[in-house]
Design a binder for these strands. Sequence first.
DNA 1: CCAGCAAGTCAACACCCGATTACAAAATAT
DNA 2: ATATTTTGTAATCGGGTGTTGACTTGCTGG
Lengths: 189, 189
Amino acid sequence: MSETPPPRKRDASATTEAILTAARAVFTEKGYDGAGTREIAERAQVNVALISRYFGSKEGLFAAAVPPMMTLDAVMAGEMSGFGARLAASLTQKTAKTGFDPMLALLRAASSPEAVPILRQALQAQVLRPLATRLEGPNALERAALIGALVVGFDLLTRVLGLTATTADAPDGLERTLAKSVQALVDQR
Amino acid sequence: MSETPPPRKRDASATTEAILTAARAVFTEKGYDGAGTREIAERAQVNVALISRYFGSKEGLFAAAVPPMMTLDAVMAGEMSGFGARLAASLTQKTAKTGFDPMLALLRAASSPEAVPILRQALQAQVLRPLATRLEGPNALERAALIGALVVGFDLLTRVLGLTATTADAPDGLERTLAKSVQALVDQR
DNA sequence: CCAGCAAGTCAACACCCGATTACAAAATAT
DNA sequence: ATATTTTGTAATCGGGTGTTGACTTGCTGG
């Protein structure tokens, strides 16, 4: 009967990775303020003080954990003619295969002053700029920003506020309407 | 030399109103978690305990303060053919004449579990439902929800994250692009 | 083998939060 | 004028936060 089966070998890189994974989950669920260092540490099965040791502070942990997960690579791959449909599909399916939702994390943390600069920079670099370069025609930056607004607003209404506006006669009407709006922004020129 | 010029007559309704006004400002600025009862009381020039007395709790104060300020009456008045332009204009001009931005308050408070049910109900009753009834054609509810998503996402990007995507050649390109997207959702049928 | 360093633990710190209590003062009714 | 109710005040409680420092434990190179 081993009460503590393997005493978890000492491995700095493994524990930092465990902290990062736990932090991504908790930040996504609770936002920046709502996530506590003790909770993150507990989920990572790690002592709280190690967060300060490895990341300096809670803010440092946030800066290390969240930006890397912000990427639209999956839906950006492929022809832009199907971008709206792919994006809408990736938003309406419950959770991405990774288990994390970067946009959800973004808007849950957006009200905390310390988190704002980190989120702004990550959003610019990982989402808006790459997307704008693939948009042809004028006002590419503005249209990319509006697509981002559509995505993040959609996530807010559905995932955070829990609005389910599916009428009986059109079960997936929301997804199709969303896809159409996004595609209109892509094709606009 | 009157040190305390008018000792502030005792008036329950006046103080509750002062608390409500201060609460709306602080909730809009800092969100639900970020807003402290002491700060609200201080801005209202009122003792902290009076919040508990008149509203029961911080959550009660939030429920009393925020929902009434959520209304799109101003931009909903008039022909629907100009709805997109009016909505976009009201979002891009720095602050509404009231000084409060209901959508901004919504998304700043959206990450706090206690605030979510209050916000959801207010958004449904004051914004989505009235808007949907004025939209002709199919999927009115879905289209209303998407307009809401566009509005709240736009506010998040511009006001919270501070993204200014105005390119040099198109100073108000953002507003026109936004108006076009909204109007497309209005006219779609 | 053991000194030295890295990795992890523990307890406490100083601070802020929302809510409650007991009390004083003003307004109103008797 | 006195009694009663309303309105406001002050101090405090219990709990939770991120962070720190001193300490212990395990690994590893000489």
